[in-house]
Design a protein around this nucleic acid. Structure first.
Lengths: 363, 363
DNA sequence: CTGAAAGCGCTTACAG
DNA sequence: CTGAAAGCGCTTACAG
């Protein structure tokens, strides 16, 4: 038995089989106006018999590809699957399909992944890349329906959707403060990766952190991962751990740690575990409330920004744009604090003051 | 300022701008044989100036789309990102792009996600869907270069790549046995979701489990999640937890739990945490060694099957097929046991026998 | 309601 | 080395 390359059925085959024109088949396919029931039945029968499936690439050349593209910056961050889940749910009974283009580890080098989608002639794009320059996006938005997640800067040619990162950072810091912490550090990405413009989620979280710290009369303090963080094979976990480890070794009193996202928070928890510190000695609050945060073994406090809901909203906005809307919409989702075991009232470090309640600043 | 839809440059525009034929531009694009240096330079300058990017859909109609499609069964299982990471690394300096089609929650209904990729005219497909019938795949394989991950059944028209699930299951069970466990249950998917044919990873793990248990003179015992597991919004975590909870409530002695993958293992650990059991009272070994398993707070024993390496191999096989290979290749990757804190020597349950070493069957 | 024809943006033989 | 022409599989006005 020799293996023979199979040629799959085309619209032409279906038309011939059903004894109608290609245009007729096309209309049935798209459920377009103006086909008799008889013809529809014949065509549908032929489609089924020949196991015909229209090629998306051919369709894309004239009309739409019925494909929506999602660009996600990192395959390692468990927040993004939440967004995808929401999007898929919303798309379930629509004619649209979803494809994902993950940004490579070298997504510094430019708008790559998002271009892959544009090149694929998708009908619309949802992107979560915060590092692409605005003018470039404005241009893309004029060519393709586009929804950007995590962009705070409003735009004219595309929609934006983001969490209220200022409020989220405030929730985290105030939570730690109310527990009694007075030394609260922010673990975030390397400076080169947090745009100085407050247009990125991480930029906004830094801003929010600074503001609340100032309001509370505390001084901001940062632990940053190295720029190589993003390209590390493990998603940078090890680098974060090292950075936090270094910080914790020099710190002596109890500290509150506000991590800019849960992956960073996991790294912090690793460092804390390695030093054998208690949640009171080093409290952690993450961001995104990824699935693992709620696991009893992890019990990590985190800021929830409704990732699933974001996916749903993003798809709705995109579908509206595809349907013709041209004015930009800018949605903001309110964050919620999920307080769990990783954050606790401050406890002193060192001489293992077992049960003796210790004196720590209460105001 | 009104927003004006942008038409992006075509090969025609470039040809005109450079004063050459479209064919010439096409050749430069594909780095094909037979272009003078002068022409190449002119064309490249025009491409840069017009910011031209070839449309993948148009290319796909005649030649290749330079796109490889990955189908992943669940966006919730953290094993798959490992595979994707490996694939992306391997593809980094190739002309190929990667797109991912996630299977919807209703991926019972047929080969959907994988068809999305085929419809998209990708140059080749790597799929991890084990539930698609073999004949269907054989047919797809004749139309498109195809690599299936996790299929044990050899095929004529596509390549396969899988972990040695029999060996992996044996590693897990023997590990628990050597720790001293004599009651060892297997937590796996609903029977309807583990094909009866030993063609799926989970089917093979069941088989491996049964064999070793028999060899060891122990009787197999299953905890299965309900069929709704796969379509649950949280990836089924809650359902697994409930199932394990139920089992642990009726069990009285120490038990070893071999979970068919880490997500199931996480659910088991949740149940164990909820009952306040120690690793000795309920030991867990997962499968896949996802990132979180190694986290000190989780410290979950697991079977590592080199997901990243699998991604690398899958891409290599696919690229070979695209380059013309037609004989099928079937690769098997050896699993490794990663023993961690979640599995320990048996301890009795109930009357909280604090430090007193208890009598439990040693042989 | 139905179909013939043009065209989307590329690549591929085929001449020159 | 270079280009004119055909064609990939669809959809879209436009006639009938």
């Amino acid at each position: 038995m020799t293996i023979q390359a199979k040629r799959s059925a085309t619209i032409e085959d279906v038309a011939r089989h059903a004894g109608v024109s290609r245009a007729a088949v096309s209309k049935v396919l798209r459920d377009a106006y103006g086909v008799s029931d008889a013809m529809r039945a014949r065509v549908e029968a032929s489609i089924a018999e020949l196991d015909y499936r229209p090629k998306a690439s051919a369709r894309a050349m004239r009309g739409s590809s019925y494909t929506l593209g999602f660009e996600i910056p990192s395959i390692h961050n468990h927040f993004f699957p939440k967004i995808i889940t929401g999007a898929m749910t919303e798309l379930a009974h629509s004619p649209y399909q979803l494809i994902i283009a993950p940004a490579g580890p070298d997504h510094d080098q430019g708008p790559q992944a998002i271009e892959v989608l544009a090149d694929r002639q998708v009908d619309g794009i949802v992107a979560i890349s915060s590092r692409v320059p605005q003018p470039w996006l404005e241009e893309l938005g004029r060519a393709t329906p586009l929804v950007m997640i995590g962009r705070h800067q409003p735009s004219v040619s595309y929609d934006t959707l983001c969490g209220d990162d200022l409020a989220g950072a405030a929730l985290a810091v105030r939570h730690l403060y109310e527990l009694g912490h007075r030394r609260i550090v922010h673990v975030t990405l390397a400076e080169s990766r947090v745009d100085t413009s407050p247009d990125t989620p991480h930029g906004m979280r830094v801003l929010g952190y600074e503001r609340v710290m100032t309001e509370l009369g505390l001084s901001p303090e940062y632990v940053r991962t190295s720029p190589e963080h993003a390209s590390a094979a493990d998603g940078g976990q090890e680098l974060v751990k090292q950075a936090v480890l270094e910080f914790l070794r020099t710190a002596d009193g109890p500290v509150g740690i506000f991590a800019a996202h849960d992956e960073l928070a996991l790294g912090a928890l690793e460092a804390i575990a390695e030093l054998g510190l208690t949640p009171g000695q080093a409290s952690v609050v993450g961001y995104d409330d990824t699935d693992i945060a709620a696991h009893p073994k992890m019990s990590m406090s985190s800021i929830n920004q409704s990732g699933t809901q974001m996916g749903v909203i993003a798809v709705r906005l995109l579908l509206e744009r595809i349907a013709g809307r041209t004015e930009s919409v800018h949605e903001v989702v309110a964050p919620k604090l999920m307080a769990r075991g990783s954050s606790a009232a401050p406890e002193p470090r060192a001489p293992r003051a077992a049960d003796v309640p210790s004196a720590h600043p209460t105001e």
